[in-house]
Write a protein that binds this DNA or RNA. Structure first.
Lengths: 103, 103
DNA sequence: TTGATAGGCAAGTGACTGCTTGCATATACT
DNA sequence: AGTATATGCAAGCAGTCACTTGCCTATCAA
């Protein structure tokens, strides 16, 4: 079912519960394969986020644990990309389950 | 944009961040138009949730503030239903934004 | 009116969370 | 080797969150 090993279901929901982490996902949606420092500077410039490097690092760690971010090592750089697949369970769970037209 | 008055964007994400609230949404997906007591007893029996009435009431309050639950008064009863529409912003934001095929 | 039922309000509490701070490791450059 | 760069680890702190507790209001039936 899961590509990665130990991803609990609740991790995805907790991951997107934080506004800064949602901005990180937005940023990775715009541009893939970014390092931690790239994400930090782009968040500051484009999204008015003033979080520190360590804060963003911890957010990325949590996003990766939830399966929403995948990373690739290249020397001292670590490139991050988004993987929106785990979000599809939300669609399956409440949006596709029943056709609800009368609001 | 929003049908209801003051629903902040973050409210939806915070609402589904809690496992008990997700179970409430599941229960309302299965059966619509339930009172607080009905939801409580069905959560206990069918989902092994042992939360108190007050706890469920507060969860419903939060879900309603997020626009995910709508309610209707009838005498001393208050019937709750699910409204999954606010969840569609998640699809729009990260799943429909870009066609990402190469994982 | 009295009692029972369905729900609401609000203060207090323990646990969790996001962030900081300080240091450590690893890679690259000269 | 020595320095700078990129990231990782872990303890501590302040704010938030879910839950409880106790009391209150409203509706219905006798």
């Amino acid at each position: 079912m899961h590509i990665l090993g130990t991803v609990k279901d609740g991790d995805v929901f907790r991951a997107i519960a934080d506004p800064t982490r949602r901005k990180i996902l937005d940023e990775l949606t715009e541009r893939d394969d970014q390092t931690l420092f790239e994400i930090c500077s782009r968040l500051t410039m484009r999204h008015q986020i003033t979080s520190s490097r360590q804060a963003i690092s911890q957010h990325l760690e949590l996003l990766e644990a939830a399966g929403l971010v995948v990373s690739r090592r290249d020397g001292r750089y670590k490139f991050h990309s988004i993987n929106p697949a785990p979000l599809e369970q939300i669609v399956e769970r409440w949006l596709n389950r029943r056709t609800k037209e009368s609001s």
